[in-house]
Structures are given as structure tokens and as C-alpha cells.
Design a binder for these strands. Structure first.
Lengths: 247, 247
DNA sequence: TCCTCTTTTTGATCTGTGTCAAGGAACGAT
DNA sequence: ATCGTTCCTTGACACAGATCAAAAAGAGGA
């Protein structure tokens, strides 16, 4: 158990995209390569960015806002498989069709790169390919941590895990003020939280109330969360690690 | 729903490693690079290849046998986060410490590459880095499919999902004879299956019995599985996709 | 072959989370 | 303000899967 750590990754100073390799503003050489293939798209809260199976002629990076990657079964059961926060990357070289449905849960701005030239670039610029590999490996670690949450944690631990992931991530990105007491905006509905954690929205609501009653969190309105003691929250999450792999 | 498909990936003819980039026997140029940094290690069933946190000076590819990647909480709750079948890759460039515990569930042979020269190679050989990215993206897709299983499927569907993953994988690798009727060796104990699916071993046993009683599978001994109708199994798994993302 | 150890199966009971249902709070539109 | 809509909370009850327990089935080894 330890304090929220300093960013371990390279942050770009004037844009919110974490990895310089896919950020057009950071490196002059890459700037030239990327400047003419990128463009911005905005979405409003609740809007679907793309449906699973859609043709997708770009890859993208989240500039601001929150989006979710979800998978849905024929009978409607839904599982979130990715949570896209600012600096996260979506899409993959070599895939024309989106594998997951992407939904904006807040107003969202994405920086898109046309796929063909992007693929050409990663094939010719080892540096960029290497960054992309690093990012993908980080995502894989996050997915595996998430599997432990889904498979073995109780409802209460699941909620605490999700809150501590978002809290830590916000702290890293500087969205939340530093210090022992953390405050952040939970940009997810109860239903989205349920889809993240493999629960029902009623169970999410009950456990949020329980954590509030027990003083682990405080709610300002519905979505604004205050965490008086981050260590306490992480203990509730059943998390002995420092969460280094969770983005 | 569709028949078991032909391999979509490039298979190396004279070695079991799927991706040529990490196979020393397939490409003369890479042969020279890899031949002097690789060595083989064998493990017997039940042996732990490495513990989470161990120093790891190699990356490796499974030649034969089955291994598992597991994560364990302080109180002993265990979740499998990766299933390593022949041709799968383990380890990542840039990480000195193993993030997960690797256990051989059968006799196991791994082809190891010393990490430092391997890292050097992926930094200087774009082709290899590109392959590694592809493999990692496939693993990420598999992890996300798995998240749907863990979060939203019933015990019966979970079992059917696991069986159909292994059946399809065996069919692809040619371990199992082709055709509508599939037969394969389930190289996992009930406990390992439970750790994969976020269940208890008793529930796994009960659902295996139920699937057998209902004629979805037949058991020759404890571990040998026969699947009379693969489509039926996939329906039981609640799986509408062709499973293309599951390795 | 018998014995021991591990793995698997099956039974009885308990419990955490899902399901169904109703009401409350927040927020924008008229 | 008042309505309508969406999101959230709380309650009562049901049930899938966990837990506890014991017996059965294999798999070596002497």
C-alpha cells in the first residue's frame, strides 16, 4: 500500500496524449508524419462513437472526456471491456472492423488518425511501433487486473476497485488536486459501473450507499466523489499491489 | 455460428511456434539473430515456472504442453489471467519482474530467449516488433472476450465457453482431428478450470456432469473430452461470434 | 494386489447478488 | 412553477453458486 505515485510515463506538455509516439504535438519528426493525417472529432455525452462491426477507417486517441468499450451478447447482457480516459488509444492496425461498441459517457473529443497512413507510419517508424507495443502491453496488464476483479472480488471490493482506479488515474493526470484527500468526478452512470464490474445497477447503488455510510467515500451530488483516505479505499478494494498496472 | 475455421495465422511448418518472428527455425535472417540467444527449458506437470515478482531474464514461447498465468490475492483467492498453449508467448520487453505466477499444468517445454538481446532485436528489427504487437493485440482481444465470460455468463455458459476455446484452439493447431466431432485432451484440473472461470471447483464439477448428462460433451476418463456437435457447444456458451478473437 | 494420496463427484445447506417493484431526486422543457 | 424524463435509491424475495462435508474414483508405489 502506498501513496498515489508520480506519473511513471512520459507526459506530453502541451497535449493530453500520453504517448509521444501518437501525439502530433510533441516531436518534430513525428509531427511532420502525423500532422496531415490527423483530425479531431467531438461527441456529446451518451452518443455512440461506433458500433461493433462498423467499418473503421481511423485509429484515435482520447483528448478529453470518457468513453467505454463494450461487448453485448445476443440477449442484451453487456460487459464493458475497456474504459477510455484522456490519453487512451482506440483501434488497432490491421483491423478494418470495430470489435467493440464505443460510447461517449461524457462530452468527448478524440484525435483521429486515418488508418492507412497510420499503418504505413508504424511500419516505417520503429519508434512509433515500439510505443504502440508498450501501450498495448499496459492495456493487457490492465485487462488482467480487471479479470481478477471480475472473477474473484465481492461486490463491495469491485466498487472500491473501480473507484480507486479512477481516483488514481485522475491523480496521475492532474485532474484531481494532490494530497491525501482526493476528489474527482465519476463520469459513469450506475449502469455503466455495473457493466464494468459484472453487477446489476441495483447492487452498485447499494454498495455505493454502504461505502458512503461507512465513511470510505463521500458524495457531493450523484457523481462527485470525495475520498478522505485513499489507503482505506485501496484496502476495501482488497488490493495489496500499488496498482501500477492499472492505467 | 460456423464451422471450425482454417488457421488465420501463419503457421511455421517445422516448429510449433505460431509467429515466425519469434521462431528461430522459420526465417533465415531471424534465424541468425535468434539462434544464439535461445535455449530450451523443460518443466514437469505441476511445477511452477516462476512466481509473480521473480526476476525474469528471458522471454519465452511455449513449444509443447500447457501453462497458466495466475494472480493471487493476499487471502488466497486465485484468478487465472492467461492460458498458455503451444505457440503462446510469455514475458514482455522492458519488464524485469514477472507480473504473474506461471505454472505448468502438464509437462512443458519452453523456448526461451535471453531478454537483453531479445529487446535489442525488437528495437532494431521492425518486422519482429510488428509481429510482437500483433500477438499482443490478439492476447488483448482474448482477455476482453474472457472479461465477458467472467462478468456476464452463467456457470454452465462459462464451462461451455472454456471447452469451446480449447477445442477450437486444438483444432487450429491440428492436435485434434478435423470434422464435426471433436476430441481433445483437457489439460486442466477442475481447480484450474475454476480459477479460469471465477468459480469453485465443486461448481465446475457439477456443470461438467450436467453437460455430460445433457449430451453436450462425453468424457473418456477424467480429462479426455469428446464434443459430438461443436455448434451445440458454442450455443451453450452463449457465443454468437465465430470466436475469431479467442486464441 | 493392496495401500495411500490426490482428484473428482455428489449431497445438504447457506448466502450474496439478482430480480421485481415502487418511490425519490435531479434536470431540462414547456 | 409544473410536467416529463432519466437516473438513482431502497425494499422484499428468489435463486445461482458458495460452503461445508463425505464418499467415490483414479493414479502411482510398495
Amino acid at each position: 500500500m502506498q501513496q498515489v505515485v508520480a506519473p511513471a510515463f512520459k507526459t506530453c506538455s502541451d497535449c493530453p496524449i500520453r504517448h509521444r509516439a501518437v501525439c502530433a504535438k510533441c516531436d518534430s519528426q513525428e509531427l511532420e508524419l502525423l500532422e496531415d493525417i490527423k483530425y479531431y472529432r467531438s461527441f456529446s455525452a451518451g452518443q455512440t462513437v461506433m458500433w461493433a462491426g462498423d467499418h473503421m477507417d481511423f485509429v484515435a486517441s482520447v483528448v478529453s472526456g470518457v468513453a467505454t468499450l463494450t461487448q453485448t451478447m445476443e440477449d442484451g447482457r453487456t460487459q464493458m471491456v475497456g474504459l477510455l480516459l484522456p490519453s487512451d488509444f482506440v483501434g488497432r492496425p490491421g483491423r478494418e472492423e470495430a470489435a467493440y461498441t464505443v460510447t461517449a459517457t461524457t462530452d468527448l473529443v478524440m484525435c483521429c488518425f486515418r488508418r492507412k497512413p497510420f499503418e504505413h507510419m508504424i511500419n516505417t517508424t520503429p519508434h512509433v511501433a515500439h510505443r504502440l507495443l508498450e501501450m498495448t502491453l499496459d492495456e493487457l496488464d490492465a485487462a488482467r487486473e480487471w479479470m481478477l476483479v471480475l472473477g474473484r472480488k465481492t461486490a463491495r471490493e469491485k466498487i472500491a476497485s473501480l473507484l480507486s482506479i479512477i481516483a488514481r488515474r485522475d491523480a496521475l493526470l492532474g485532474t484531481a488536486p494532490p494530497g491525501k484527500e482526493l476528489s474527482f468526478d465519476l463520469a459513469l452512470t450506475r449502469e455503466a459501473m455495473a457493466d464494468y464490474l459484472g453487477l446489476t445497477l441495483e447492487t452498485v447503488s447499494r454498495q455505493m450507499s454502504a461505502l458512503k455510510r461507512d465513511g470510505v467515500i463521500a458524495l457531493d451530488g450523484k457523481r462527485k466523489i470525495r475520498v478522505p483516505d485513499m489507503d482505506r479505499l485501496m484496502t476495501e478494494a482488497g488490493d495489496d499491489s500499488d496498482g501500477g498496472y492499472l492505467i
